[in-house]
Amino acid sequence: MIDIMALLNEIKKAPYREITVSAPHTGRIEFAVKDTGIKVDGATGTWSERPGTLLARLIREGNAKPLHAPEKGEVVHFFDIEDGQFVQAGTPLLNIRHFLTKQEVIDIILKKALHLFKAPEKGRYYFVSEIDIKIKSQGLRSVNIRDGDEALILSRMKRETIIHYEGPDGIIYTTYFNSNESVEMGGPLFGVCPEDQVNNIKTVIDKIQSGWEEQE
């Protein structure tokens, strides 16, 4: 088992993450937020139906696409881009310093504590239907997985390959992929917790729940 408290203290030293907001496509950029130090919000509402703070508009072919803050935080840096400039796809625009929430801290620690099953190749991944059905009906942490089980379908270049799980037996504790998006080779797909460690993990989470204070 890893030393959770040490890890927590490590995170506490810099309890935030910097998020770079980039242009999703080409277009002329018009900033709505112009100064550093401005506080922004991520999407809110029960269904995240209210978008976050408007950061900028990206105008392409007569359509002004709003760019909203992905998370709550503070604008800390603007890249060297002028208002009204044409930007290429993926151009970094600004940085938001986002203070970690309890859930995010838990995720970081889980990533260290769980056995991570990593993408053997770059591509899109789906759970095999057996697991998928179980997760959809009973939720995560209901699926036991053993070394050698059929776990995922890898889809790339219009072909699908079945991927077998390799690692310790246990339950699927969290997933890290989205079947709409390609996962880089070596990126984590899901985290497995050996059954005898489930309680340990719970303790860790409880510790964070009580020992972490979210910052504004």
Partner: peptide
């Protein structure tokens, strides 16, 4: 009759492209 594109509201879900 306008030279502009419109975003599909389902872009996030289905990766729809802006439509002319």
């Amino acid at each position: 009759n306008q030279d502009r594109t419109l975003p599909c509201p389902n872009t996030v879900k289905f990766n729809c492209l802006d439509l002319w």
